[in-house]
């Protein structure tokens, strides 16, 4: 009887997951494999596809624009990640203090708010607030006496990157703070109490107890920021003319992938960029998860 019912349920279970599996294969994995196939071809939508072998990949590793786009993407991530995580860490620490119990939810909600708003809306808003001649931000700085002349923020490579990095940091620090706070709340109060008895001050407790114990959450937030950072598209795309101006300073990898595929109609080369990006993301994720789980047994 038992084996009969087990067999019966085994088939039933597959029925339950079959629709999802079919859709996953059709709508997610098939386009991915198809992209991989196209990455070995020359294709402009109009003329027939032509097999090129590894030519697209050879071009990719020597393409200065591609390499620059990878560098830009990385740089913009680097410009915001430590600031973002630093702020999140300090805020999470204060939010997990007892005296915050009443206003905690309000602050978390406000800090998290920018994360929910459509990125293209935020980028459009920031682009016009920062406009050279008519932007409110310049007028504000002039009124405050901080500058004499309006600054053409988005015409400078440094400021264009800084604005992009700030916008992303602004959208994501609340998310990081909430996750880190949840990690901190899980730490046993006893640990802090015995440290207090041993004469540890607040900073020592933070460094020696809090930080090591939230390391998994910290790594998770870090990895999420890196994966998201490598896929950076919406904000730099809207902040510029789509080409990453000035001087391609905020041309990200996904923007380059989009431009090559759908503006220049080099779909084969665009597909190769996709897989270049995919490889980078997989490598980075694997490396990060090794750091996350590698030292689990306390061997350091």
């Amino acid at each position: 009887m038992a084996s009969k019912s087990a067999r019966k349920y085994s088939i039933t279970g597959l029925y339950f997951i079959l629709p999802f599996l079919v859709m996953l294969l059709l709508f997610r994995l098939y386009p991915l494999l198809f992209t991989f196939q196209i990455s070995f071809m020359r294709w402009d939508l109009l003329s027939p596809r032509e097999f090129l072998g590894l030519a697209n990949y050879q071009r990719l590793v020597a393409d200065p624009v591609f390499l620059q786009s990878v560098w830009n993407t990385f740089l913009i991530w680097l410009m915001n990640v430590f600031f973002r995580l630093g702020v999140a860490l300090v805020f999470a620490y204060f939010l997990s203090q007892r005296f915050f119990s009443r206003s905690k939810h309000f602050f978390m909600a406000v800090f998290y708010l920018p994360n929910l708003i459509t990125a293209t809306s935020i980028a459009t808003l920031f682009a016009i607030l920062l406009d050279w001649r008519t932007g409110t931000f310049n007028f504000l700085l002039i009124e405050l006496g901080l500058i004499d002349q309006p600054v053409y923020w988005l015409n400078s490579a440094f400021w264009a990157r800084a604005v992009t990095a700030f916008t992303i940091g602004w959208m994501w620090f609340g998310y990081a703070a909430i996750l880190l706070m949840a990690g901190m709340s899980a730490i046993s109060e006893d640990l802090y109490e015995s440290a207090t008895i041993d004469g540890a001050n607040e900073f020592q407790k933070f460094r020696r107890i809090t930080i090591p114990l939230i390391r998994p959450t910290l790594t998770y937030v870090f990895v999420i920021s890196l994966i998201g950072g490598l896929q950076n598209f919406d904000i730099p795309m809207v902040l510029t003319d789509g080409l990453g101006s000035p001087d391609r300073s905020i041309l990200t990898t996904v923007m380059y992938l989009y431009n090559q595929s759908f503006r220049n109609l080099n779909l084969g080369y665009g597909a190769a960029i996709s897989f270049g990006l995919f490889a980078v993301i997989m490598a980075v994720t694997a490396a990060s998860f090794r750091t996350l789980y590698g030292n689990r047994d306390g061997i350091e």
Binding site: S10, L21, T35
Partner: peptide, 29 residues
Amino acid sequence: FRFKGRNILFYGILGTIMIPPQAALVGLF
């Protein structure tokens, strides 16, 4: 439900979370 390949399928599905959606853009188009 218990069935053959349950764990492999589950972790396989989980693994697809890591695929960046932009990677399949040309193929999806």
